[in-house]
């Protein structure tokens, strides 16, 4: 082909990701939430080096000591250093976030994609199934699944992961319903893309941004519910330094040793708060209507 005629010149724009990062950094919620999340990740990664004591080391002489220079956040009822246990607890917190989110996001997204792009029959089957799941109160469904699988950290995470599926499925389905009418989907089909190609290569990348925002909102909720499960004895089992489990162990000393409850409570509060405002910020930044 020999016709080489130059088009009008391209207007130079800075790379998309640079502008995106700049927009992220201008958003205070993203900065605060992101900092908390990064700190959490660093603590989880380097816990053995940061923590001054072994989180499982029992020291009966030092039991229920108030915060001091020796034990920054005091000790619990068997003399374990609370500060070290809180640091190791960040590993559980992140593990819970990641495992529950991957279960609900992967299965929920797949179901939503199929429901949104599939035939009327598959859509009704999937969505009625989702409706049945949504008819159960969230915590009740979690408890039922834990009751079936038996109480432990992993069954707790699995049950919360499953309970989170309907939200993702509905979100993705509605996004697919709008995207699948777009010209580029018709065009991809006209150019020989199979239905699977269209689903995963064309539609999925275009529904990612609402998905990311929902992820940031549902992760802290999942972590909170997992801690609640531990609190009622159906999640993490002692002596694991999971924040929820630590809360339940220390609640009997609420009036005599306030620090034993306050530490894990504050850790949960700050982490969940961080993820939540990160989600808020991401929603604002990723919302196409707010794009400058």
């Amino acid at each position: 082909m020999s016709v080489i005629l130059l088009d009008e010149p391209l207007v130079p724009t800075p790379p998309r990701w640079r502008r995106f990062v700049a927009r992220l950094l201008r958003n205070p919620s993203v900065v605060v939430g992101g900092t908390i999340l990064i700190l959490l990740i660093l603590l989880a990664l380097f816990a053995p080096w940061v923590a001054p004591y072994d989180p499982f080391k029992v020291n009966p002489v030092q039991r229920l000591k108030p915060p001091s220079w020796l034990h920054l956040m005091g000790t619990d009822e068997v003399g374990r250093d609370l500060f070290s246990r809180l640091i190791f607890g960040s590993r559980y917190f992140l593990l819970i976030c990641i495992v529950t989110a991957s279960i609900s996001a992967s299965i929920g997204t797949l179901l939503g994609l199929i429901a949104g792009a599939g035939s009327v029959v598959t859509e009704s089957i999937i969505m009625r199934l989702i409706d049945v799941m949504l008819a159960f109160p969230y915590i009740l469904m979690v408890l039922v699944i834990v009751a079936i699988l038996g109480p432990s950290l992993w069954t707790g995470m699995i049950s919360i992961g499953i309970a989170g599926i309907p939200g993702y499925a509905r979100l993705v389905r509605s996004a697919v319903l709008t995207v699948k009418r777009e010209d580029y989907v018709v065009s991809a089909r006209a150019l020989g893309a199979s239905e699977a190609d269209i689903l995963f290569r064309t539609i999925l990348p275009n529904v990612l941004s609402p998905l990311i925002v929902y992820l940031a909102f549902s992760m802290p909720l999942a972590a909170l519910v997992t801690s609640s499960l531990s609190f009622i004895g159906l999640g993490t089992q002692p002596p694991a330094p999971e924040w929820g489990a630590m809360l339940v162990n220390s609640r009997t000393y609420l009036f005599s040793a306030w620090w034993a409850v306050t530490g894990p409570g504050m850790a949960l509060f700050i982490s969940i708060f961080g993820l939540n405002i990160l989600g808020n910020g991401l929603r604002d930044v990723l919302d196409p209507r707010s794009a400058a």
């Binding site: 580029y184 089909r189 150019l191 893309a193 199979s194 275009n206 990612l208």
Partner: peptide, 26 residues
């Protein structure tokens, strides 16, 4: 369906009126 998607693209192609909205934006 399989033959159809092989046929499209391989033996026939199609282009549309709004080229910018026919390309996947992401």
């Amino acid at each position: 369906a399989r033959e159809l998607s092989r046929w499209r693209g391989r033996d026939v192609g199609m282009i549309f009126q709004q080229p910018q909205s026919c390309l996947n934006p992401v």
